[in-house]
């Protein structure tokens, strides 16, 4: 699936969608026109749902391989949660969690 045509069209799709989202307010909601209320509410509620979905997406391998991938990713995730609760430093938590995961992978 790493054919250049597939990659380039995918990148173009992602670019187009993202740019249109950023440009949308300029086309529709400039000046007098306000955003519809349901869209505004969706904008507030959606981000935390999406992040929850993405966390599940990242940890989906746990289901297929509970020991080999599952245990290391759950332990590393726990460390990310705890270290982030402790220091609230994104770098620190990412580096700690990723290093631990890479080390653990070699043992299982």
């Amino acid at each position: 699936m790493n054919r250049p045509s597939y990659l380039l069209v995918s990148i173009l799709v992602a670019f187009f969608v993202t740019f249109m989202l950023r440009a949308l307010p300029f086309m529709f909601f400039n000046g007098e026109k306000k955003m519809p209320i349901w869209l505004e509410q969706l904008g507030k509620a959606l981000p935390s749902s999406i992040m929850a979905v993405l966390v599940v997406y990242c940890l989906k391998g746990v289901k297929g391989d509970p020991i080999g991938i599952g245990l290391p990713s759950l332990v590393a995730s726990l460390i990310v949660v705890l270290s982030y609760k402790w220091r609230r430093n994104t770098f620190l938590s990412i580096i700690l969690g990723t290093t631990l995961y890479m080390v653990l992978l070699r043992f299982f």
Binding site: V55, Y84, I94, Y101
Partner: peptide, 18 residues
Amino acid sequence: EGIDFCMTALFITIFMDQ
């Protein structure tokens, strides 16, 4: 191998902020 966990870690920290 396993460097992709940085994505998981990033999402977890954003999720905790939210």
